[in-house]
């Protein structure tokens, strides 16, 4: 059993095998994501009822919440992939971690921008030093650090490893950062309007929200696969199979 697992693991961690096997996956994941997100948005934007306190402005949660979820989940993914790469010396994990960084950065940006748009009618200002917005801003800074470090290194392998160590430090820090920012926030702004507080969400809002979150996760999966596959081709371009694949892609 264990041996089977190890063999399976080794097979999947070989870039070539992964490249071949993941070919249909990005396609199906991508379409499922498009379908889910489209349904969720049409439902959420057009058919869900108007919220009692916030009116129509709440509808941005169908983008904001999934983006915020993903921004955090992707950082975890990067840290885990980095740890796998460092411990078992698996190149594929580094490739995936590297390609997750821009996706995570854009999700954090999306969460911040939608948060700001949401904030304008709710708080009357584009930016409020709300605990969650501040945490997201710091997460964005952590992403930028990863990106800067990866690009500063001359050798890509060093960049991979260095970024993996930084991501591990960051992932340990994230809970502490969130805790401290909450503390700071309650200290300075005790009267901030809490949006998704205890009030239970109406089913017709919850279902499209959950669909949208799932859709975002699938979209992340598809996007990451596509990017990782390109990264594999780029990094393995000395291998014969990769050269043939590049030629085939260019011919199309």
């Amino acid at each position: 059993m264990w041996q089977m697992f190890v063999r399976w693991f080794h097979k999947w961690s070989s870039p070539k095998w992964f490249y071949e096997m993941s070919r249909p996956w990005s396609f199906w994941l991508g379409w499922a994501a498009v379908l889910l997100i489209a349904t969720a948005l049409v439902w959420g934007l057009a058919f869900s009822p108007v919220e009692r306190v916030q009116g129509n402005s709440y509808r941005i949660i169908f983008l904001h919440v999934p983006a915020a979820f993903l921004a955090q989940a992707i950082y975890m993914t990067i840290a885990i992939a980095g740890a796998v790469g460092l411990v078992w010396r698996i190149k594929l994990a580094f490739y995936a971690a590297k390609q997750c960084v821009p996706i995570g950065t854009s999700m954090a940006l999306l969460a911040l921008i939608t948060g700001a748009i949401w904030g304008k009618p709710t708080w009357g200002a584009w930016w409020v030093w709300d605990a969650r917005l501040t945490s997201m801003l710091i997460l964005l800074l952590l992403y930028l650090g990863l990106w800067a470090l990866q690009n500063a290194m001359e050798r890509q392998e060093s960049g991979d490893r260095a970024a993996a160590i930084l991501a591990l430090v960051g992932v340990v820090n994230i809970p502490i950062i969130k805790f401290s920012v909450n503390w700071w926030n309650t200290l300075h702004q005790p009267a901030t309007l809490k949006i998704s507080s205890a009030a239970p969400m109406h089913v017709s809002m919850l279902i499209p929200l959950l669909m949208s979150i799932l859709g975002f996760y699938l979209a992340f999966g598809a996007w990451m696969l596509i990017r990782t596959r390109l990264e594999i081709l780029d990094r393995e371009k000395k291998a014969k199979w990769a050269q043939e694949e590049i030629k085939r892609l260019e011919a199309n």
Binding site: L141, L149, L166, N173, F179
Partner: peptide
């Protein structure tokens, strides 16, 4: 500075 300062928020 870019790498360390965000970690230093707490």
């Amino acid at each position: 500075t870019i790498l360390i300062m965000p970690l230093f928020v707490p």
